[in-house]
């Protein structure tokens, strides 16, 4: 099995490692770097539990090779708040947008990317935006409200 040296910036910190060519990004993040907030729910890009931001864009890290992230900037849930809490994190807890918490990191990163692109999304925009992330507990209604709340908080922040 060939191995390659890669250098990935995760949550602002650069990590250089020698990895197997077939190592999945999600395993690189979880096993090599010990950032276990990124979860694995399937292996077919279906559930979105492993969603991270790859150069700002949501990517399902269970079907991205770590070598494909060489030179990239990755944001995981651990880097979302940047020391405090991101408005998306506040929205999710205030609106009870999570229950078991397993889909939550991926769902929040998808939501952040959605809001970065569209700061004032409609309910339909939000539902479409999170439709690649499965949640089995919440029934999505409170996740929609959480994203709407995050949108409000982000506007308050930028106004203030």
């Amino acid at each position: 099995m060939s191995s390659h040296q890669i250098s990935v910036t995760i949550n602002g910190e650069q990590h250089t490692r020698e990895v197997e060519a077939r190592l999945l990004l999600v395993h690189f993040i979880r096993e090599e770097l010990g950032l276990t907030g990124t979860h694995i729910g399937c292996d077919t890009t279906s559930c979105g539990a492993c969603t991270v931001l790859l150069n700002g864009v949501p990517a399902k890290s269970c079907t991205v090779f770590a070598v494909a992230a060489d030179g990239a900037e990755v944001t995981t849930v651990e880097g979302l708040g940047n020391g405090g809490l991101h408005p998306v994190q506040r929205g999710f807890t205030e609106k009870h947008g999570l229950q078991c918490g397993f889909c939550t990191p991926g769902m929040m990163l998808t939501s952040k990317a959605l809001l970065d692109e569209n700061p004032d999304p409609s309910e339909a925009d939000i539902r479409w935006g999170i439709s690649g992330n499965l949640c089995r507990c919440t029934g999505y209604v409170n996740i929609v409200k959480a994203v709407q709340r995050a949108s409000e908080l982000m506007k308050e922040n930028s106004d203030g």
């Binding site: 276990t36 907030g37 849930v77 651990e78 994190q89 807890t93 009870h96 999570l98 918490g101 929040m108």
Partner: peptide, 19 residues
Amino acid sequence: VQRKEDARFIRGQGRYIDD
């Protein structure tokens, strides 16, 4: 009441089996 368990879950600090 806001959930106590959320504090760790929204930070990715839940401890699930594979962790």
